[in-house]
C-alpha cells in the first residue's frame, strides 16, 4: 500500500512542525503550506490524499479556501482545524469531512484522519 500524503495548511510555523511530526509518526507523508496561495500550488504539485485546513489565516481564510478547493475537487477529504468551535455551526464548513478543535492532545486529529482513510478504503474495495 502506498503511503498517504497529507497537506497541512496553517499560518503558524510551529503548528505545521508539530502536525508534520505527529502525522509522520502515524506513517503519512506530510507536506505543508503557510497560506491559501501556497496551498493551491502544493495541491497541484503533489496531489495530496487529505488536507488539514486552519480557518483563521491572514489573506484568504480556510473557509474561503475550502470553497475554492471544492470547486475543482469534490472528493478530497478536508479536515478543518480551528482554535475554537464557532465555525462548527457555519454551514460553509459543512463541505469539509471533519471539524476539529485544536488541542495539544493530538489524539482526536489522528483518530479522525485514520477513520477517514479507513472509510475511503472500504469505499474503494466496494467499487
Amino acid at each position: 500500500m502506498t503511503r498517504k500524503k497529507i497537506l497541512v495548511v496553517d499560518d503558524e510555523e510551529n503548528i505545521r512542525i508539530l502536525y508534520s511530526e505527529e502525522l509522520q509518526d502515524e506513517g503519512y507523508d506530510v507536506i505543508t503550506a503557510s497560506n491559501a496561495e501556497d496551498a493551491d500550488i502544493k495541491i497541484k504539485e503533489s496531489n495530496p490524499d487529505l488536507i488539514t485546513l486552519d480557518i483563521k489565516m491572514p489573506g484568504m481564510d480556510g473557509i474561503e479556501l475550502l470553497r475554492k478547493l471544492r470547486e475543482y475537487d469534490k472528493n478530497i477529504p478536508i479536515v478543518m482545524c480551528s482554535a475554537y468551535s464557532d465555525y462548527k455551526q457555519d454551514f460553509r464548513t459543512w463541505a469539509s469531512e471533519a471539524y476539529i478543535i485544536k488541542s495539544s492532545d493530538m489524539l482526536e486529529l489522528k483518530s479522525t484522519i485514520r477513520e477517514i482513510f479507513k472509510k475511503r478504503e472500504v469505499g474503494k474495495l466496494g467499487d
Binding site: E12, L18, A83, K102
Partner: peptide, 21 residues
C-alpha cells in the same frame, strides 16, 4: 476574550503538543 483565546491557543497547542512528544 475570543481574540485573546485564539492568540493564546496556537502557541499553547504547540507547547503542549511538543511537551507530549
Amino acid at each position: 476574550a475570543a481574540e485573546l483565546a485564539h492568540e493564546i491557543k496556537n502557541p499553547l497547542v504547540t507547547i503542549g503538543g511538543f511537551a507530549r512528544r
